[in-house]
Each structure stands twice: as structure tokens, then as C-alpha cells.
């Protein structure tokens, strides 16, 4: 994306793949991912840091890509929705969102998936209150959150059952 300031090369690892892109210092990470690297799975809803649609995992931690500059992630690892599962497959989190109707228009979904992934890393068996508290930084205008909360609960339950079986 052309800019009036000078540009710098940004090197990072996106979904396990080393990528090099060119960014002006003021370019947002969300724009860098979407328009610089062509990874349009990350969505932008407000650029005010409120809606959470642009949430990605930066070095494993959920972060709003509209509140970070591309140059700040130099050398970092970024995980986006495009890398959540092998091509043609869905991760357990993605499958649970489908099973529980945790999405309608799909625009906020990549952010919710990233937050859910991070939540379950930190807290594999959250209570409903903990799920609600953790996901309160992501906004969905379609679902009323019922299917989203149920999807997170479903993944936690399934993972727990799988670990007991193992």
C-alpha cells in the first residue's frame, strides 16, 4: 500500500510461514495483514480498539491488529484465522462454532475464534462467567452470543473428554 512516508521492511512469521512485507511506519497491522500480505480473513470493524473483529494472536497472545503498527511486530509470530486448520479442514474451535450456530454473517468470527483459542490455552475449563468475561472484548451484532458461549463450552468439554480418554 503506497504511502507518503518512507517504508521499512517488516519480517514476521504468519501462520508458521516466514513473510516479508513493506510498511510505512504508520501502517496498522490490520492493514498490513489484509492489504500488504493479502490475508483478508482478519476483519476490521471499528479501528477504535473496541469491537475486537481484528483480533489476532501475536506471539500467542490475543491482540487487536487495528491498535498495533505493522512495524511493532517485527520478528514476531502472528496467527490468523487462515492458519487455524489445515486446508479444507476446521479446527475443533471452528467446528464448535458451526455446531452451535456461533456465527451468522461471519464478520466478527475470526476475532472470536482467536480470542477463544487464547482463552482455552490459558484456562482449559472456564466457567460460563469466565467465558463471558474473557470474550467481552469481542462484539457480535448477529448472534446474541448464545451460540458463541455454547461453542466455547463445547470445545472445553470435548477437549476434557479427549484428555481423559488419552
Amino acid at each position: 500500500m503506497e504511502t507518503k512516508q518512507g517504508t521499512v521492511a517488516v519480517t514476521l512469521t504468519v501462520n508458521g510461514e516466514k513473510r516479508v512485507g513493506v510498511a510505512e511506519p504508520r501502517m496498522l497491522l490490520s492493514d498490513f495483514l489484509r492489504h500488504g500480505l493479502g490475508m483478508t480473513g482478519t476483519h476490521v470493524g471499528c479501528e477504535q480498539g473496541v469491537c475486537g473483529a481484528c483480533t489476532v494472536l501475536i506471539d500467542g497472545q490475543p491482540g487487536r491488529s487495528c491498535l498495533a503498527f505493522a512495524v511493532q511486530v517485527e520478528g514476531a509470530t502472528v496467527d490468523t484465522v487462515e492458519g487455524m486448520a489445515e486446508p479444507g479442514e476446521l479446527s475443533d474451535v471452528q467446528q464448535a462454532f458451526r455446531a452451535e450456530h456461533g456465527l451468522q454473517c461471519g464478520f466478527c468470527t475470526p476475532g472470536f475464534l482467536a480470542s477463544t483459542q487464547a482463552l482455552l490455552e490459558q484456562n482449559p475449563d472456564p466457567t460460563d462467567d469466565e467465558i463471558r468475561e474473557y470474550l467481552s472484548g469481542n462484539v457480535c451484532r448477529c448472534t446474541g452470543y448464545q451460540g458463541i458461549i455454547a461453542a466455547v463450552r463445547r470445545v472445553a468439554t470435548e477437549r476434557k473428554a479427549a484428555s481423559h480418554d488419552a
Binding site: 489484509r34 490475508m39 483478508t40 480473513g41 482478519t42 476483519h43 476490521v44 490468523t80 484465522v81 487462515e82 487455524m84 486448520a85 476446521l90 471452528q94 462454532f97 458451526r98 456465527l103 454473517c105 461471519g106 464478520f107 468470527t109 475470526p110 475464534l113
Partner: peptide
């Protein structure tokens, strides 16, 4: 859903 869940939705800004 599989399309929208895997980042393959194509919205206006795409």
C-alpha cells in the same frame, strides 16, 4: 459456515 470460519468470506473491503 466452513467458508466463513476459515477466513474465506469475501466482504466489500476484500
Amino acid at each position: 459456515d466452513p467458508r466463513l470460519l476459515s477466513g474465506q468470506g469475501r466482504y466489500i473491503d476484500d
